[in-house]
Simulated scan of single mutants.
Amino acid sequence: MKRDAQATRQRIFDAATAEFAQYGIAGARIDRIAAAAGSNKAMIYTYFGSKDELFDAVGLEQLNRHMNDVPMDANHLPDYAAKVVEHYCQHPEIMRLVTWARLERGPDAGKLTGLLDAYQRKVEAVAQAQKEGKVSDRFPAATLLELILCLIQTNAEPSAEFGDQDEFQRRQQAVKDAVALLVQV
C-alpha cells in the first residue's frame, strides 16, 4: 500500500492542533498526537523535528489562516474587529493556541517567523490611516492596534454564553462600538 505523505502530514497537523489547543505545549503528548493521527511518533519527528517545532508550525499556520480569512482594512477598523470576534468564535483553537504560547513562552510568544512582519504591516496601515485623518491619532498606531486586539480577545473568549446567538451579537456589537469610539476622529 502506497503512503500518502501529504495526507499523513495533514493528519498529524490536525491532531497536533487539537492537542496543543487543549493542553498547551508542556501538556501536549506526542503519543496522543500520533494515535489521533493514525501515525507514529517517528513520523511526527520526521515531518516536524520536535514538539516545539510542531507547535510553531501549528501556530504559524493557524495565525496565517486567520490573517488571510480576516484581512484588516485600517479605514474600517470597527468592521474588522467585529469580523475577528466572529472568526475567533468560529475557530476557538486560534485563541487557545495564542493563550498557551503567551503562558508558556512569555515575551517570545509572538516571535514566530513572519508574524512580526505581518503585525508591523498592520501597524503601518493604521499609522497611514491616522496620517490621512481617517483614524484618531490620540494613541500611537501600535497602541491603538493593541487596544483593539485586547477588546477583541476579551469578547471572543469561548464560553457557554456564545451558545446564545443574541449574547454573541451583543458582545460583537459592543466590540464594534468600542472600536468605533477609539478610532473616531
Rank of each mutant, 00 (worst) to 15 (best):
L144H: 02
P92V: 08
L145N: 03
E132L: 09
T113D: 13
T99W: 09
L116M: 11
V126Y: 00
E124H: 09
A101K: 03
L147R: 14
R138Q: 14
V126H: 01
K131H: 14
R121V: 10
T143K: 15
V98I: 15
D108Q: 12
K111A: 09
L116F: 06
L116E: 14
T99G: 14
Y119W: 13
Q90D: 15
Q120I: 07
L149T: 12
P140Q: 12
S159Y: 03
L151I: 05
K134P: 02
G133H: 11
H91S: 11
F139L: 15
R121D: 13
A118W: 09
L147W: 08
A127D: 08
N155D: 07
S159T: 11
S136V: 00
G106V: 05
P140A: 09
G133K: 14
G114S: 05
N155I: 02
E157Q: 14
P107A: 08
M95G: 15
I152P: 01
V98W: 11
N155Y: 06
M95I: 15
T154R: 06
V126D: 01
R96I: 01
T113S: 10
W100Q: 00
D108V: 09
G110N: 07
L144I: 04
E157S: 07
Q130H: 00
C150Y: 11
L116T: 12
R121A: 12
Q90T: 11
K134F: 02
E146V: 03
Q90M: 09
L145F: 07
P140R: 13
R105L: 13
E124R: 09
I94N: 03
G114C: 05
L103E: 15
A127E: 10
A141E: 05
G133F: 06
R102M: 14
S159D: 10
A109S: 13
K122Y: 07
T154K: 04
L116C: 08
L97G: 00
S136P: 02
R102Q: 14
S159W: 03
G110D: 05
E104F: 02
T99M: 13
V135Q: 01
T113C: 06
L103I: 15
L149Y: 12
G106A: 04
G106P: 04
R121E: 13
P107H: 05
C150S: 14
G114V: 07
V123I: 13
T99D: 13
E104H: 03
S159E: 07
G114W: 06
L103C: 11
A101W: 00
A101M: 04
P140M: 07
A141T: 05
I148N: 01
D117Q: 12
G110L: 03
Q120E: 14
K134W: 01
L145K: 01
R96A: 15
Y119N: 13
V123A: 05
R102G: 12
H91W: 11
L149W: 11
R96Q: 15
E157L: 08
E146S: 11
R96C: 04
H91L: 08
C150Q: 15
C150P: 04
A127R: 12
A125E: 12
V123N: 09
R138F: 08
P140C: 04
A101C: 04
E157C: 05
A118Y: 09
M95C: 10
V123W: 07
I152L: 01
C150A: 14
G114I: 06
A156F: 02
